[in-house]
Amino acid sequence: MEKVVLDVPLLWADHHVLKVRQALTQLDGVEDVYASSAWKQVLVKYDPAKVDRARIEQVLAQAGYPVGQGQTPILVEPTEKRRDPRWGAMDFRMSQTYRADIEMSGDFRKW
């Protein structure tokens, strides 16, 4: 039995784990799968007689999780100076404590 650790950049959450596992565990010769969304890696133990790494990668790619390719989608790219443009657009300015903050916390209530 052999094992291989594959980087799968699109495996970034546990609903992807369910899909990756579904794809791999159906594959004949795959004995054990650890799909880790935390580390975006898949550990596959397989019987080299029945299946090979290329096939595993192919199945992964078909399932939408190509090995080593793609990346977590980032909708907001960093800008040159990192001045975050979105902050300025926030309809939000406060230079006093919000009343609800005080009222909701019983500790600080003063009647």
Binding site: R83, W87, M90, F92, R93, M94, S95, T97, Y98, D101
Partner: peptide, 21 residues
């Protein structure tokens, strides 16, 4: 740099919860 009073307020809680708490 760039710490206006308003940004500090935002930094400590985001858009929805900004405060000095």
């Amino acid at each position: 740099p760039g710490f206006s009073h308003e940004y500090i307020n935002y930094a400590l809680g985001g858009t929805y919860r900004g405060s000095f708490r």
